[in-house]
């Protein structure tokens, strides 16, 4: 949604230019007056832009470029300066490191585990909420409240939920007669536990996006289809879900990118363990950068991760562009 609107605005830049040309050629005194007022706002524009641009260049663009440069040097956190030139050495090292590939796989596995339930459940809950006549504030509270909590709070609560023998989940599972899994201690199961926590935590965001998408489905379609004898299930299947396609594509891409950027849950709940089984890419970068002090290698891993995220966004842009004419 955001990006289509943004490009729409970029399109307005060109007409604005021609407009200023016409005022320049305008002969009436009011035209000249206008021209003086509305073109060439270089100085005020600079003043208005300066505070943002200054911080933006200093703390976003600057570090981004510096990080890229650093990735080609043997930069170390303990020595000042860039250090020795490394060429593609850092990239070669990261790409041949089994730890990097393992962390990338954990991140992708986490994305696979979280994305489908976060989309399907959010959609289902939004569809159900749409049909509930009252109490929408309550559903919003229940599903959205967790989303706004800090990851550390969520992690503390779920560590307690997962505490062996004492936690609420272990009690629930054992009272149902199942053997209790070692929620966060089993290398194979820990990621599932983290995924469950994440679904609970972040579902509200997608839920709200879907609720907003549902507002845009015209009421008349439901009324018209009801007169034609369509039942609620048919309405959902044939009207609501197809008309939510745009929302779904937005939710999917935002969700994939958010899941790829996972760090907090693992860092707090499992510290990337047991035996590094839940170490995500960001934690890998954190570890080599701030535990091994190898900034150059960490910057190279950051750049590679950035490329992955960018590829997902680019893929989404291409796909939605292709869909656009049909909608």
């Amino acid at each position: 949604m955001a990006s289509t609107e943004v490009t729409g605005q970029a399109g307005t830049v060109a007409p604005a230019r021609t407009e200023s040309h016409t005022t320049r050629s305008g002969r009436s005194p009011s035209g000249a007056e206008r021209e003086r007022r509305w073109s060439g706002h270089g100085k005020p524009a600079l003043l208005f832009l300066a505070p943002f641009l200054l911080l933006y260049l200093l703390f976003i663009i600057g570090p981004a470029i510096y990080g890229l440069v650093m990735s080609f040097f043997h930069t170390s956190m303990v020595n000042p300066g860039l250090g020795e030139f490394a060429g593609f050495g850092n990239y070669a090292e990261v790409l041949s490191s089994s730890d990097f590939w393992a962390s990338l796989w954990h991140t992708i596995w986490f994305t696979i585990l979280t994305t489908p339930p976060l989309i399907v459940l959010a959609l289902v809950f939004a569809l159900l909420a749409e049909r509930a006549r009252r109490g929408r504030w309550f559903f919003r509270l229940a599903f959205f409240l967790p989303y706004i909590l800090p990851s550390a709070v969520v992690a503390l609560i779920w560590i307690w939920m997962y505490t062996p023998e004492l936690g609420l989940l272990s009690r629930a599972v054992t009272s149902l007669g199942f053997a209790e899994p070692d929620w966060l201690g089993d290398p194979d199961f820990a990621m599932v536990s983290l995924a469950v926590t994440t679904v609970w935590w972040t579902l509200g965001f997608n839920f709200v996006l879907y609720l907003a998408g549902l507002q845009e489905v015209p009421r008349e379609l439901y009324e018209a289809s009801a007169i034609d004898g369509a039942g609620p299930w048919q309405q959902i299947r044939l009207i609501t879900v197809p008309l939510l396609a745009r929302t779904t594509s937005l939710v999917v891409v935002l969700q994939i990118i958010a899941s790829l950027k996972v760090f907090d849950q693992m860092y707090i709940m499992t510290q990337g363990g047991p035996n590094f089984a839940t170490r995500s890419v960001l934690q890998y970068i954190f570890d080599i950068g701030f535990t091994d002090f190898r900034s150059g290698a960490a910057a190279a891993a950051s750049t590679l991760f950035f490329i992955v995220v960018l590829a997902v966004s680019a893929f989404w842009l291409v796909m939605t562009r292709r869909q656009e004419p049909e909608l």
Partner: peptide, 8 residues
Amino acid sequence: QVLVVPQF
């Protein structure tokens, strides 16, 4: 998140 190393 990819900026933390140079920002530091």
